[in-house]
Computed example of a mutant assay.
Amino acid sequence: MIADYLEEVLNDAGYEVCGIAPDVETAITMGRACQPDLGIIDLRLPDGRLGTEVAAALCPGTRFGALYSTGNPDHPMLRDAMGVACLAKPYTPDVLVAALHLVWARMMGEAAPSTLPNGLRLLH
């Protein structure tokens, strides 16, 4: 239900959503088929696996900006994770859209602004 709502928020903000994946394998398959520029990846997935597996499969050799969404932004797996940023839950739709804009800007080589959206942390 939350993913469906976020899809609506992103569509309203002008993003094209290629789909919602319930697990690592589906996310990787969908990512390889759609070749998205950006992805919002939950750190902990329902099957107990981590979204870092998705970014590790999709980031190398592509221009894919991974934004992790998590209730634990200090999770040790994020220290070396492929991706651009991590957004702490809970967040508002406006903060999510601002975070995606920033992830895109970083993918384009722009410097990070001096002030980040609330709950956003850049990786690496």
Rank of each mutant, 00 (worst) to 15 (best):
T92N: 07
T115H: 09
Y91D: 01
L116F: 07
E8Q: 12
R49T: 11
D37A: 14
Y15T: 06
L116E: 06
L102S: 06
P46H: 11
A21S: 05
C59N: 06
F64Q: 01
M30F: 07
P46K: 14
V17Y: 02
E53G: 09
I20F: 04
G51D: 00
E53S: 12
T62Y: 09
P60R: 07
R106E: 04
E7L: 07
Y68N: 01
P46Q: 14
A27T: 00
R44V: 15
I41R: 05
L45V: 00
A55G: 01
G61Q: 08
I20Y: 04
P90S: 07
G65C: 01
G51K: 07
L58F: 10
A105F: 07
A111D: 05
S69T: 09
A111Q: 05
D4N: 14
Y5Q: 12
V17S: 00
L100H: 04
L102Y: 07
N72D: 15
E16A: 15
M82V: 08
V103I: 02
G19W: 01
P90K: 04
A99V: 10
G61Y: 08
T115Q: 10
T70W: 10
I41Q: 03
I40N: 06
A112L: 09
G119T: 02
L6F: 12
L78Y: 08
E16I: 11
T92P: 05
D4T: 15
H124R: 11
G71L: 13
P113Q: 02
L120F: 05
L123H: 02
G61L: 05
L6G: 07
A66S: 05
L96F: 14
R121C: 08
P117T: 05
T92H: 13
D42Y: 12
D4E: 15
A66Q: 01
A66F: 06
C18Q: 02
D12N: 12
A99C: 09
A66N: 01
A57V: 04
D4S: 15
L96R: 05
Q35I: 11
P46N: 10
D37V: 13
G31F: 11
A13K: 02
T62I: 07
V84P: 03
A33I: 11
G48P: 03
H101Y: 11
D12K: 11
A98P: 03
M77T: 15
R32I: 13
L10W: 08
D12L: 13
R121P: 06
H75A: 13
L116Y: 04
A88M: 07
G51Y: 02
A81M: 01
T26I: 10
E8L: 14
A99T: 08
E7W: 08
T70Q: 03
L45S: 01
D37W: 12
Y68S: 02
G71R: 11
P117Q: 06
A27Y: 04
E53T: 09
V84G: 06
H75R: 08
E8W: 13
R121F: 08
A57T: 03
G39D: 02
V95G: 00
